[in-house]
Computed example of a mutant assay.
Amino acid sequence: MNLNATLIVQFVVFFVLVFVTMKFVWPPVMKALDERAERIANGLAAADRGKAEMAAAEKRIAAELAATRDESAKRIADAEKRAQAIIDDAKQTANVEAARIVSAAHADAEQQVTRAREELRGQVAALAVKGAEQILKREVNAAAHADLLSQLSTEL
């Protein structure tokens, strides 16, 4: 065979191969590459959106956490105020009760002193009558001299 004819046949086969490749193989390969490039671009865009959403979520979480801390501090302060108010109320009630008890004790002591004075007056009157009876060596009628005894007891 001739070298030129072989070369020409190889050129024709090469061009047919290039034509078939360009017509049937190249478009699906390019389509697959384009789809892959698009998927990669979409993935990168989704990753960027995810990062942005993550940053926004972190900001929202930080804001909610701060709000929760403030609310907790406020509730704790309110609870402390209520506890202090309850303690103050209990102290005031205890002071009133203590004053009432002291007043009742003073009144009771005053009554006991008065009763003791009355008893002492009665005893002193009885002793005075006995003493007068012994001095006079005669019997004194207590009913007849009741006015005298009551006057004596008021003087004591």
Rank of each mutant, 00 (worst) to 15 (best):
A109I: 03
A99V: 12
K51T: 06
A107C: 05
A128Q: 04
T68N: 04
E71Q: 05
D108F: 15
A52V: 12
A73H: 03
D34K: 14
K81N: 05
E58G: 03
P27H: 00
K59D: 11
R121D: 01
V29L: 13
D108S: 15
M30N: 10
A56T: 00
L120M: 08
A63T: 05
E118H: 10
D78S: 03
S72H: 09
A85W: 01
T68W: 09
I86E: 15
E35T: 12
K81S: 03
A37E: 15
V113R: 12
E71R: 07
E53D: 15
T93K: 12
S72A: 10
E118T: 04
R49H: 09
R100P: 04
G50V: 01
A85H: 04
R115T: 05
A79L: 10
R36T: 10
A77I: 00
I40T: 11
A45V: 08
R117G: 00
R121T: 02
R39V: 12
A109L: 14
M30D: 11
E64D: 11
V29F: 06
K74C: 01
A77V: 00
M54Q: 05
A41N: 05
E71G: 00
N42A: 15
R60H: 06
L120P: 03
A63W: 03
A85R: 06
E64C: 02
Q92M: 12
K31R: 09
I61L: 13
A32K: 10
K74E: 13
E118D: 13
Q92W: 11
V29P: 02
A41P: 02
K51Q: 07
E35D: 15
A46N: 06
E119N: 09
G50S: 08
I87W: 08
A125P: 00
I76G: 04
A98V: 06
K91R: 09
A107T: 12
I86L: 15
A66D: 07
A116C: 01
A67L: 03
R60D: 13
A116H: 06
I40W: 12
A57M: 12
L44V: 07
P28H: 01
S72P: 01
D78C: 01
A67K: 04
V124A: 14
Q123A: 13
A66G: 01
I61V: 10
I86M: 14
R115W: 07
A94G: 04
L65I: 00
